[in-house]
């Protein structure tokens, strides 16, 4: 391999942008409807033994349709995913971290308890990426490479969608949406974020959060009871793993799951699962 002499990108970024745009359109045309269908199936399964609940699959689909349309509208008028995320979910604050004493909330059992934990982890990721982007915008992290900024905004948008999916399940089952960040991990993340002074530090913190999320979904896969819940969890875990791969690449390390010493691993562990 030739030595990298900081040869910048020359002239063809438009191709990459076009490719990303195509993929994003494909995601909204194909991926999102398929995902919402999966979530609605999960709700059907969870409600199969409780026909008395008022929220129907039809109501849910109408609701998420509005949410997706709202997000699309925000994006179409030029707001970035950061703003779209803040507009469609309640942005967690440090105060909400401190006041969330009992978690998961009382009354949630089985798959719904897992949904609550998953939503809280996704909220934590949204919170962290928001904080990172705010710090970057304020110039607190030095020069931020364009690819890192794109990574953060895209990952933030995807985590927002993950949180929405889990909260849609909770809401459709008559449960309150989880708007707090995971209370177990939040103090550590806050403490670690306070030490972040540059993009490398932020990427390492993101790597930790993504790893915890991926391993948690993986560990829960064999514990969830409904097929739809397993399907939703399984559709999210690989995406968190992809975030991890790109973060490793940005950090100049082998772009895949690896041991603490950097040795690539063929099987993803679960020792960091929440």
């Amino acid at each position: 391999m030739k030595k990298n002499k900081n040869i910048g990108f020359v002239g063809t970024e438009s191709e990459l942008v076009a490719m990303t745009k195509d993929l994003d359109e494909l995601h909204h045309d194909v991926g999102m409807p398929a995902m919402w269908e999966g979530v609605s199936n999960m709700i059907d399964n969870l409600q199969s033994d409780d026909a008395s609940r008022g929220t129907s699959r039809r109501t849910f689909l109408m609701g998420v349709g509005g949410a997706v349309a709202g997000s699309a509208a925000l994006l179409s008028v030029g707001l970035n995913p950061l703003h779209a995320a803040a507009a469609t979910t309640q942005k967690p604050s440090p105060k909400s971290i401190l006041t969330s004493a009992a978690f998961p909330p009382a009354g949630l059992k089985g798959d719904l308890a897992v949904a609550a934990v998953a939503a809280s982890l996704e909220n934590l990721a949204v919170y962290a990426y928001n904080a990172g982007l705010s710090a970057a915008t304020a110039g607190k992290l030095g020069t931020v490479p364009p690819a890192v900024a794109t990574f953060a905004t895209t990952a933030l948008a995807q985590h927002t969608q993950h949180a929405q999916a889990w909260n849609a399940v909770l809401a459709a089952n008559g449960k309150a949406k989880v708007t707090v960040v995971n209370p177990t991990l939040a103090p550590t993340v806050n403490a670690d974020f306070a030490k972040v002074t540059d993009v490398t530090g932020l990427a390492k913190l993101a790597l930790t959060l993504e790893t915890i999320a991926a391993e948690t979904y993986q560990a829960e896969t064999s514990k969830l009871s409904s097929a739809a819940a397993i399907g939703l969890s399984s559709s999210i875990q690989p995406v968190e793993m992809q975030h991890i791969a790109i973060l490793y690449y940005v950090l100049g390390e082998y772009p895949g799951v690896q041991s603490a010493s950097g040795s690539p691993l063929a099987f993803n562990p679960t020792n960091q699962a929440a």
Partner: peptide, 19 residues
């Protein structure tokens, strides 16, 4: 990483949910 085009940061994970 500093030389990567912006789009390279997201091209690796095109979908929020794996199809």
């Amino acid at each position: 990483a500093a030389s990567l085009p912006a789009a390279a940061g997201s091209v690796g994970f095109p979908n929020a949910f794996y199809k």
